[in-house]
Simulated assay, not measured.
Amino acid sequence: MNRPKTRRVAAIDGRGQFVLIEEPVPQPGRGEVLAENRASLISPGTELGGVKGRRANPDPDAPPRRFGYSSAGVVLEAGKGCEDLPPGTELACMGDGYALHSDYVVVPRNLTVPKPPEISFEEAAFAHLAATALHAVRRADVRIGENFLVVGLGVLGQLAVQLGRIAGAHVAAMDLLPMRRELAARGGADLVLDPRDEPVEQVRRFTRGYGLDCGLIAFGGDATEAVELVSRMMKVAPDTHRMGRLAIVGGAQFQASGWPVAVGNMDIRPSSRPGPGYHDEAWEHGRDYPAVFVQWTTRRNMEEALRFAAEGRLDLEILITHRLPLGDFAEGAEALVSSPGAALGVVLRP
């Protein structure tokens, strides 16, 4: 086919409104591929978190901000160093500024993985968030037979619930929104909790008095109450110190009263990004790390997450609430901002 000259890209303008812009299609450089998108997934947290702020303090002169970082498609053209990814190769793609909500994307080779034939392009478009969830579950060091709680059941939290089950843990899931709790139950959560309904006592019974071994906070914003609540659910040593591991992913912030004494010996572990390599430009474009020293890179996490999906162990389909053409992306994005109780996985099809 002839190389496309222009592409449509989803963006947010200075007033916080969703707009579709048109721009030239970039030329793939060394270590990059040009792909035709077949699906992309809107992340309701990271991508749309600044919309309300822009609407509250509009700047009409600010240029539109393109967004999107998780997509799947078919290679149209391979740059130098990507000869093993010929035209026609089906890929899952990720990366802020690369895997945009667009007709066509240019993505570094190590931010792509082959799409398993057993899954759809829509499912493959979850790769970025699935890899981030997998990295977070590893940071929490979830082990077989342990009691694990996920707080915040957006797309990433839902994926963490399922991955916790794959790891062999007894999984509890907590969120304010009924729809998200229902999805977590469908995804395999053993216990779903409303934080307003005496969750500490429910967790005590669920863990048979042992308390939580580990937890994950999977939402952005002020997490002070969540951290304090989770600390009350953790296992307790004879000297009254709270024990266990709590991973925090995304932009959550907290200021626990009496910190750090208030949380005892509980380990709090930030979980940044989908794994090592992301935002290392040399790595992204093909210079890999020695696998014997850095086993779980971003790319390996993408591969493993999609392998779980291909094997039927990770159910991505149940997380899709909206399917829309790219031209109607504003409808889906607005639903995520204005109606979070009714929208979750919004997939765009160019």
Rank of each mutant, 00 (worst) to 15 (best):
T112Y: 00
P116L: 02
R65D: 08
G14L: 00
A130W: 09
H101K: 00
E284N: 01
A160W: 01
A173L: 13
L246M: 12
V346N: 10
R300H: 04
P44T: 04
A136P: 12
G168K: 07
Q255M: 11
A252M: 15
G29S: 05
V171R: 11
A124Q: 08
P350K: 01
L314D: 11
L20A: 12
L324A: 09
V294G: 15
C93T: 15
A39G: 04
T321R: 00
E281R: 11
A189M: 04
M174T: 08
P325K: 05
K52Q: 06
R15L: 00
L324C: 12
H101S: 00
R313D: 14
R8Q: 14
M174Q: 12
G29R: 08
L20T: 08
P276I: 09
A133C: 06
Q17C: 01
E118Y: 03
E304I: 03
P87H: 00
H279R: 14
P60W: 00
L41F: 10
V105I: 01
T89E: 03
L111T: 03
P63Y: 04
V227L: 15
D328F: 00
I42M: 11
E225T: 06
P199S: 01
E118H: 08
L193M: 01
L348Y: 11
A167H: 13
E317Q: 09
E198M: 09
S120H: 02
I21H: 07
P195G: 02
E317H: 13
E23I: 13
S231H: 13
E182C: 15
P4V: 08
Q295S: 14
L163Y: 10
V107Y: 03
S120E: 03
V337T: 09
A247I: 13
Q255I: 11
V292Q: 14
G81E: 10
D103Y: 07
E317F: 06
P28L: 15
P64H: 01
L134V: 09
D84V: 03
F254T: 07
P195W: 03
L348P: 13
V75G: 02
G97A: 03
Y289A: 06
L326S: 14
L193Y: 01
L191V: 11
D288N: 08
Y104V: 08
I248P: 09
R307K: 14
R299V: 05
S338H: 02
A226N: 10
G81T: 10
A333K: 04
P63A: 05
R66T: 08
A62I: 01
L129A: 04
G264S: 09
A291V: 15
E22W: 01
H279I: 11
D190I: 05
A342M: 07
A335R: 11
I320K: 12
P26I: 08
Q158F: 06
A185F: 11
R54E: 00
A35S: 03
A130Q: 12
I42K: 07
T46K: 03
L153F: 03
D239M: 13
A11N: 02
E311M: 13
I166R: 12
V294K: 10
G154E: 09
V200N: 13
E123N: 07
F126Q: 08
G250L: 09
V51I: 05
D175Q: 14
F219H: 14
R299P: 05
L177N: 02
L314N: 11
L153I: 07
